[in-house]
Amino acid sequence: PAHPYDRLKTTSTDPVSDIDVTRREAYLSSEEFKEKFGMTKEAFYKLPKWKQNKFKMAVQLF
């Protein structure tokens, strides 16, 4: 299930529990994912792991 970005980011005051914290981005809706990352999930997962992590750090999901 998708969760709002505000509850997934590492600085959230009301974090979602029971998620894989190493894959926070996977819980974003497709729309919100595209808004935050500027690309689709499919394109994101084709990137090298280090680049994925760099993007995730930039949007507080790492």
Results as ranks from 00 to 15, higher is better:
53 N>W: 11
36 K>R: 09
42 E>K: 09
12 S>P: 05
21 V>R: 07
16 V>S: 04
7 R>V: 08
50 W>N: 02
27 Y>R: 01
33 F>S: 01
43 A>P: 01
3 H>G: 04
42 E>A: 11
9 K>E: 08
27 Y>S: 05
45 Y>T: 07
51 K>W: 13
46 K>E: 11
8 L>P: 04
36 K>I: 15
51 K>I: 14
45 Y>L: 02
23 R>A: 04
1 P>L: 12
44 F>T: 00
31 E>M: 08
13 T>Q: 12
55 F>R: 08
7 R>A: 08
25 E>K: 03
8 L>W: 05
53 N>R: 10
2 A>K: 14
9 K>V: 12
4 P>V: 04
3 H>R: 02
22 T>S: 10
40 T>R: 01
35 E>N: 07
21 V>S: 09
36 K>T: 14
62 F>V: 15
46 K>S: 13
45 Y>S: 06
50 W>V: 03
4 P>A: 10
21 V>H: 09
61 L>D: 13
18 D>F: 05
11 T>K: 03
49 K>H: 08
34 K>T: 13
24 R>C: 13
13 T>D: 10
3 H>C: 14
58 A>P: 01
36 K>F: 13
10 T>A: 03
5 Y>D: 07
8 L>G: 04
46 K>T: 10
32 E>N: 05
20 D>C: 11
60 Q>P: 12
47 L>Y: 03
29 S>R: 02
30 S>F: 11
7 R>E: 07
44 F>L: 00
17 S>D: 12
49 K>G: 08
62 F>K: 14
33 F>V: 00
23 R>F: 09
32 E>D: 12
6 D>Y: 02
1 P>R: 11
29 S>T: 13
27 Y>V: 04
34 K>Q: 15
60 Q>D: 15
10 T>F: 06
36 K>C: 13
27 Y>Q: 06
9 K>R: 09
46 K>W: 05
21 V>W: 09
60 Q>W: 11
41 K>D: 01
38 G>R: 07
7 R>N: 07
9 K>I: 10
57 M>T: 07
47 L>V: 01
41 K>G: 02
12 S>Q: 04
50 W>I: 02
3 H>Q: 06
29 S>L: 02
26 A>P: 03
6 D>I: 00
6 D>K: 00
13 T>K: 09
34 K>Y: 15
13 T>W: 07
30 S>P: 14
40 T>N: 11
18 D>T: 07
11 T>D: 12
20 D>A: 05
32 E>I: 06
36 K>G: 01
50 W>E: 09
33 F>T: 01
59 V>I: 12
20 D>P: 04
14 D>L: 08
44 F>A: 01
47 L>K: 00
6 D>V: 00
2 A>G: 10
27 Y>N: 02
30 S>T: 14
60 Q>N: 13
41 K>E: 09
28 L>V: 02
55 F>W: 12
61 L>F: 10
1 P>Y: 11
44 F>C: 01
41 K>N: 01
15 P>L: 07
18 D>Y: 07
27 Y>P: 06
38 G>W: 05
20 D>V: 04
22 T>M: 07
43 A>S: 11
41 K>V: 09
12 S>G: 06
47 L>D: 00
52 Q>H: 00
8 L>A: 06
57 M>I: 13
34 K>V: 13
54 K>E: 15
27 Y>G: 04
25 E>I: 08
3 H>M: 07
7 R>I: 11
45 Y>F: 10
46 K>R: 13
13 T>E: 13
51 K>P: 00
27 Y>I: 04
44 F>D: 00
21 V>N: 06
8 L>N: 05
4 P>S: 09
2 A>S: 15
22 T>K: 09
36 K>W: 13
50 W>R: 02
45 Y>E: 11
51 K>V: 14
56 K>L: 07
5 Y>R: 04
38 G>N: 09
